[in-house]
């Protein structure tokens, strides 16, 4: 008999699953049974993380920027102050005039085998996308050969 906490919903039922008879008790809904049986045979999880995203600044923005830079406000040059306080910190590792780097939240479109999570995290390290990205966009349709897609979980039109 294996005891486990159901992770399907916030209630967190205490499940008891019998690996030989493949029976489940303690679940308040059918999803709990499905979860427990999967835990016994091949446990699966949804992986969420972030990937690198780069926003190339548009030429018209650059023009606007240099106009702002040449304007003097209270005796000192006005910089790109509309953005800097809100730029992702990671952008300052390699500051560049023509792009901003940030992070895009992503998830696996379905649950993936638990023992593949590490491979997925490794694969995620190598991904870079550019704006615009919309929620639900498929970043990669088969992440780390799991057969599961990695999708964007938010819209980022710019950074």
């Amino acid at each position: 008999m294996r005891e486990m906490t159901c992770i399907v919903c916030p209630i967190g039922c205490q499940l008891r699953a019998d690996p030989t008879k493949m029976t489940v008790s303690g679940n308040r809904c059918p999803r709990g049974r499905k979860y427990a049986l999967e835990e016994l045979t091949s446990p699966r999880r949804t992986v969420t993380s972030t990937i690198r995203i780069i926003h190339y600044q548009k030429p018209e923005h650059d023009a606007q920027l240099s106009a702002m830079q040449s304007a003097l406000v209270s005796g000192r040059p006005m910089e790109d102050c509309d953005r800097s306080a809100f730029k992702p910190l990671v952008d300052f590792f390699c500051p560049s005039a023509n792009h901003i780097e940030g992070r895009l939240p992503v998830k696996t479109a379905q649950d993936v085998p638990k023992d593949r999570i590490e491979d997925i995290m490794q694969a995620i390290h190598h991904l870079v996308v550019t704006t615009p990205i919309h929620m639900g966009d498929v970043i990669i349709d088969n992440i780390a050969d799991t057969g599961v897609a990695l999708i964007a979980t938010r819209t980022l039109l710019e950074l």
């Binding site: 190598h126 919309h134 966009d137 970043i139 964007a152």
Partner: peptide, 16 residues
Amino acid sequence: KIAPESTCDAVAVTKA
């Protein structure tokens, strides 16, 4: 997400 620059995959995204 540090990966050597050369191994970074610029991904062609499938739009939702």
